[in-house]
Structures are given as structure tokens and as C-alpha cells.
Amino acid sequence: MVFPLRAEIPDKVTTDVTFLSVFDPTAKQNLKNMETTVKNVFSLLKYTYGLVPIVAGLDKFTNILTDWSQYLSEGMIPMEAGTFMMIVGVIEIIAGALVLTKTKLGSLIVAAWLILIAITLLISWSYVDVAVRDLVMAIGAYSLYKLSDHA
């Protein structure tokens, strides 16, 4: 069963579903199920892109997960790697907190941050696998941004 869904025009969706429910009594329930799915995906992405940057940011101070300075190329920054990573950690913690509190803004910041990290890694042609992963994660953060209007 297929019915038109115009999520960007909520009144139109209601009208379409009301019209279709004459022909298909499950149309309203299908729309409700879709709305629930969107809300669940939104929540999953929100907590993922909120908590992961916070954890990674905190780890910049402890290096429990990894030695973060290994991702910096020699001469890339004009300060000690540990100091730079602590600054990065603070930025990541703020970005994660923004995703949790102001999701639309925070998700765009996290997406941009991930793209910048990926570009930096690609320029130095080191950790290309991490760069690709970060680009994919940026797509997920941008998806969260797009969903924030509908959840």
C-alpha cells in the first residue's frame, strides 16, 4: 500500500490520510507508525551524536580510548599536541552538549566538525580510514539536522 506523504506540509498530510482512510482504513495507523519510527530514529541519533562527542572530548584529557595526538601530523599545529587536543576536547564537549540541548544547531556543528577532521586527515593522507568514517558520521549528523524539523 502506498500513499502520498508530504511531511513538509503537515496539514496536507492529514488531508491525504483522511482522504485515503476512506479507501484504506490502515492509512492513519501507518502514518502513526511512521511518525513513531521517525521519533525513535531522531532520539537514537540525538543521543549518539550528543554523547559520543562528549565522551571523545573527555578522553582528550585522559587518552584512555587512544592517544589522540597520533592523529596530528608533524608541524601541523603551533603548540604542543596535548594542549591542542585538550582544546579540541572542550570544543567536542560543547558540541555534544549542544546536540543534546539545541539539536538542530548542535547537529550542524558536529557535522561540520567531522568534515573538518576528515579534510585534515585526507590532506595529510594519514588515517584515511578514519577520514572516511568521519565523513559517514557527518552524513548521520546532517540527517539528524534534517529530522529535527519532524520529530
Rank of each mutant, 00 (worst) to 15 (best):
G82F: 01
T36R: 11
G89M: 12
M34F: 15
Y47E: 07
Y49N: 00
N30E: 12
F23N: 14
V17C: 04
E92A: 01
L44M: 12
M85F: 14
T48N: 10
N40C: 08
A81E: 10
K12T: 07
T14A: 15
E8L: 02
K28L: 09
P4A: 14
A56Q: 04
Y47V: 11
Q70E: 10
F61Q: 07
V41L: 13
V55Q: 02
M86N: 11
S43H: 10
D11R: 06
I77H: 06
D67A: 05
T62A: 06
Y47Q: 10
M79W: 06
D11L: 06
E92D: 09
T83S: 12
D59T: 04
N33T: 11
D24Y: 08
T15R: 10
D11Q: 09
Y49Q: 02
V13F: 00
M76R: 13
Y49H: 06
V52T: 11
T48D: 03
L20K: 15
A27V: 03
V17L: 06
V41Y: 10
V88T: 11
E35W: 00
M79F: 05
I93Q: 08
I93R: 07
A7R: 12
F42G: 00
G50N: 03
V13Y: 01
I93H: 08
T37M: 13
L65I: 15
G82W: 00
P25I: 10
F19R: 07
F3Y: 12
F3G: 04
M79P: 00
G82P: 01
K46T: 13
N30C: 05
P78Q: 01
S69E: 13
V41K: 08
D59M: 04
L51R: 00
I87H: 05
I93G: 08
N33D: 15
I9R: 11
N30R: 15
Q29N: 12
N40W: 09
T36W: 04
G57C: 05
G75I: 11
L72R: 03
D24E: 13
L31G: 00
F19W: 02
E92M: 12
F61H: 08
P78T: 03
V90L: 15
F42I: 08
I93C: 14
D24S: 13
Y47W: 15
G89H: 06
E74P: 03
